[in-house]
């Protein structure tokens, strides 16, 4: 009989790749543990959003969750460097960062009574608008939505010189339609799922940030498991979350194509001067978050590692 049940909650809904992979993960764990260990899944946000779910985990009502940056930040704000504006230009850089700082990041989870079973990013986030935006200057006058209480979006848009309009996510679609806002940001996959792509004309093809995500389990629950089950959980977590990350990157790329097909113009920024401006804005925004989310030393080390990696990658080409 099943001795250990991990109660797990996520915002992802049934039928999505996210949940399908999670079910595969659960099946693998059940099989390898001989039925001793398994997840009880609460999908579609029935247990609430990240902050609610984290409260329930602290309370012991739930044990595990698939969370986005907000939830990751609840564990430790330092981890949110993953979501910092204009830090990464592509998935290779993200993978490099996670590998290089693996021990430091894991320690951050454990220190705060969590175990990270695997990173599973939401994906690169793009700015969607109803007027063409190809440069920092074009941002001027965009009525940009921002997720209220999201310090990263606030910092990013502040350094871009716009004061965003805080609205709840459910109000964004109608507000794009009515013109209350004419700009928003999210991952392509989410944009299509939320139908935002039907209400915007342009997508700026410079990623604003890479939105993080992870599957975590409370250390309290993890410690009740015998060593062999812990190993099964960690190994499969890594395996399936890696698979999920690959799949979601493919799906995000496909979602951009869907948006194109449905009439969204994807704006490329070819001018290196313009790209440099975006990079400079990002640097400023990341700096403004020092002391709020992470310390100066950590930011310096991450920025340097990513810059070195980018240089070696370019020299290879």
């Amino acid at each position: 009989a099943q001795q250990y049940t991990i109660k797990f909650a996520t915002l992802a809904t049934d039928g999505t790749t996210w949940l399908n992979v999670m079910r595969e993960f659960d099946a693998a764990v059940r099989k390898e543990s001989g039925g001793r260990l398994g997840f009880k899944l609460y999908a579609g946000g029935v247990q609430g959003e990240d902050k609610d779910v984290m409260r329930k985990i602290r309370l012991g009502q739930l044990h595990s969750a698939g969370i986005t940056g907000v939830g990751v930040g609840e564990i430790s704000s330092k981890l949110r460097i993953h979501d910092a504006p204009f830090l990464f230009e592509g998935p290779e850089e993200v993978d490099f960062f996670l590998k290089t700082f693996e021990n430091e990041l894991s320690a951050e989870f454990t220190k705060n009574d969590f175990v990270n079973l695997g990173w599973a990013e939401v994906g690169f986030v793009y700015v969607l608008t109803n007027k063409p935006v190809r440069s920092v200057a074009d941002m001027n006058g965009v009525k940009m939505w921002a997720w209220e209480g999201d310090p990263i979006a606030a910092a990013a848009f502040q350094s871009l010189g716009i004061s965003p309009i805080p609205l709840s996510v459910t109000d964004v679609l109608t507000s794009l339609q009515t013109g209350l806002i004419n700009g928003a940001y999210t991952s392509p996959l989410a944009a299509v799922a939320l139908q935002w792509n039907t209400r915007v004309k342009y997508m700026l093809n410079v990623p604003l940030a890479d939105a993080s995500g992870a599957v975590v389990v409370s250390k309290k629950k993890f410690d009740t498991l015998p060593a062999d089950l812990q190993e099964i959980l960690l190994r499969n977590g890594r395996k399936y979350m890696g698979e999920l990350t690959r799949k979601s990157r493919d799906e995000n790329a496909a979602a951009i194509q869907t948006m194109r097909r449905n009439g969204v113009t994807v704006l490329e920024v070819a001018d290196p001067k313009m790209l440099k401006e975006f990079a400079a804005t990002g640097k400023k925004a990341r700096q403004s978050l020092v002391g709020k989310l992470y310390d100066q030393d950590f930011l310096n080390r991450v920025e340097k590692a990513v810059a070195d990696f980018r240089a070696t990658q370019r020299s290879k080409k």
Binding site: G149, S163, I165, P166
Partner: peptide
């Protein structure tokens, strides 16, 4: 604030 000045208090809605 939004309609006249194009801005808003970030903490207002909370």
């Amino acid at each position: 604030l939004r309609n006249v000045f194009g801005t808003g208090l970030v903490w207002g809605d909370t």
